[in-house]
Design a protein around this nucleic acid. Structure first.
Lengths: 153, 153
DNA sequence: TATATACCCATTGACGCCCATATAATCCCA
DNA sequence: TGGGATTATATGGGCGTCAATGGGTATATA
């Protein structure tokens, strides 16, 4: 499985360390399993992150936007300048950068949400509320996991 | 037969393990017979699942969406974090993820229902009640297998 | 020097992996 | 085609490993 999937709730210890979920670690490239990049989620009150190699992909996507558009400016500012490279220790733990931790209002527990090619880190209650909202929106739009997962080409 | 069909009632042992029905295992791709993905059924109090290969297709599709669109966000949010990849051991058994187990109110026995391209896992009594209800509803609507099987497009 | 963090080592409970058995299904050969 | 032998499936249990977590000490940085 080379995708960030599922959800994990991990404790933050007295030193501020938190375990990066084992299954997430396995998604990171073999060449660099000890570093991730973190940044503020643009649309939500959460931290977003991915492996370093994904950064290049993001750069490409942003580069494809109209160079003179507001979006280009906004995205490149809010993403690149906000990125915090973060090291993962031998036990698979890392320190959540203080600014991001504050931004997401995380205190003593962190919820890790798999999002495919990236992941999000939430204050647990906020995370639950947010996914509940998503779930309801899906129901209203009559889309369900089943329709998406089982549809044939 | 590359479809999930028929119904099986399997016991959950002291360690929480349950056999994934042999005929279901044969539906999984030869390349990966030891992993399935599970998620909450949206419309019923049951667990739904399928092989991992579908997930990868979805990931590919989602990745092709506009990186900054609402759709990209919505899909990745509602799909990836809800999915629980689950390993099947050498004997064909697996652990039902606790959250899903609770959701379906499963305790010491699980009913596996083949649904074609996916399957469902029910608490046995709930499963029986649900299929009985379905049967009656079909009868009331005067639909029969024959109508469905013989209708032309 | 004070504070933070990198680097060790320890603990615990859960899980993966292995081996075992009973029953059911299948096969094979006379 | 019958009946014994072989194989497959569901199930039970032991044990080593790993993930998450806790904490001590050296090292760095300001």
């Amino acid at each position: 499985m080379d995708l960030f999937v599922s959800r994990y709730f991990n404790k933050i210890d007295k030193k501020g360390r938190v375990s990066f979920p084992s299954s997430f670690r396995n998604v990171l490239p073999k060449t660099n399993k000890s570093e991730i990049i973190l940044y503020k989620s643009i649309k939500t009150e959460s931290i977003e992150g991915c492996g370093v190699e994904r950064l290049k992909e993001i750069a490409k996507r942003i580069n494809n936007l109209d160079f003179f558009s507001e979006d280009y400016d906004d995205f490149s500012t809010s993403i690149f300048s906000e990125i915090v490279p973060t090291k993962i220790d031998k036990e698979g733990r890392f320190l959540i950068p203080p600014e991001l931790k504050d931004y997401a209002k995380i205190t003593n527990e962190a919820a890790f949400y798999g999002k495919g090619h990236f992941f999000q880190i939430w204050e647990p209650k906020n995370g639950l509320n947010s996914s509940e909202t998503s779930r309801k929106r899906l129901l209203n739009e009559k889309k369900s996991l089943r329709t998406i997962l089982t549809q044939q080409k």
